[in-house]
Design a protein around this nucleic acid. Sequence first.
RNA 1: CGGGGCAUAGCGCAGCCUGGUAGCGCAUCUGCUUUGGGAGCAGAGGGUCGCAGGUUCAAAUCCUGCUGCCCCGACCA
Length: 439
Amino acid sequence: MRLSRYFLPILRETPKEADIVSHRLMLRAGMMRQEAAGIYAFLPLGLRVLNKVCRIVREEQDRSGAIEMLMPTIQSADLWRESGRYDDYGKEMLRIKDRHERDMLYGPTNEEMITEIFRSYVRSYKDLPLNLYHIQWKFRDEVRPRFGLMRGREFLMKDAYSFDLDQAGAEHSYNKMFVAYLRTFARLGLKAIPMVAETGPIGGNLSHEFIILASTGESEVYCHRDYLDFAVPGDDVDFDNGPALQQIVSKWTSLYAATSEKHDATAFGALPQDKQVSARGIEVGHIFYFGTKYSAPMKAVVAGPDGAEHPVHMGSYGIGPSRLVAALIEAFHDDAGIKWPETVAPFKVALLNLKQGAADTDAACEKLYAALQARGIEVLYHDLDERPGSKFATADLIGVPWQILVGPKGLAAGQVELKRRSDGMREALSPDDAVVRLS
RNA sequence: CGGGGCAUAGCGCAGCCUGGUAGCGCAUCUGCUUUGGGAGCAGAGGGUCGCAGGUUCAAAUCCUGCUGCCCCGACCA
């Protein structure tokens, strides 16, 4: 992409409403624009990152056996009256009336709808297990939206819903998501630690929040240091192998880890001093087993091997891709701007022509640009007539992992400079070598 | 929902106290010079001062009401 033909509204100064670093940098880097409190438009650069996050989420959901679909944002109130949540949900739910005065709502989540879909088609235990997910915008009318995308009212969510004949099957489904989440966050470059979460009326220990550690996190979290070095399951993990999955989950839940609400100071204090990690965290995922909470009242039942009808055991599993974009920035930034992990970076490399309009640098850049594109490398070519300092600042701000600096001095020696954004490493090499290095 | 604050050009701000032709920096546009860490000079364009009432000869400025947004708390993915 040539910057001269792109839409990248960089802000040189920080908008005053942005207080936390991810909000500030997203606005400055031209990734998004606030349209109302807690409601944002994704601009091209922001959308590229959001889509990359979604792609990884999707790939890992698919790998675990979950099946993608897409449910609407607007739902009928009748559905929610069936589960009893229409009255319970309170003012967080955005209620709407259509032209016929029918009660509608902008979905804050989809348990009711997916249960309705499930019950109208599935009759037999032989069709189980089933895990359906979608990635769709949600709306929760928070009293106080804040922190930019981190606590917006409208947000993108991947929500999966599992259906099993009994609790044992549901636990296997739960473990699949657990492992898929470990892999998802690892691929995003994040260290996410599963922490015991509130389970509500169901009880048990089948609810975990996945928390990443970031100094700007919203809540206080406590965990055993060894979690930071645990190996994440590889892409060869067999999701149908129940015992193997259970082993992984057991390992990842064996040590102390809790958010402040569930914190047990005594248990934490019993850990060796050097193993105690107390930090701030951001919740990026939440998985939940809730049994027959919706299937029973909504009559989502299947015939079991015994010939009798059983309400299905369900679980739901959420990841917030839009929040993840912000969380990634909280985790990866410095004073100059964002430092994207390669897997989610909007572009892999920024090509900076340090003397736009000069025959040699122009020619070298065009050649590099073509060579990078030919290899399928996502490149943003900064071809505007700006001074070098301004181009450096822009490239650092938007956080593209690599920069190729093409200037007259280096070019005279047949060299360009390759700079790594994450640690500032620089290396002088020939243009051809630079392309090879990035391939 | 309780407490605090803000609203003046695209962004950041001054002006308001003490009413009298709306300013500064950055950004934008034109020209020239410049080109390895947000360039210099010269010129130009851009604002019903959040909205609605009121006071006054005269309101960005004083008064009343409303709206929007931000921060702290309670709540939440």
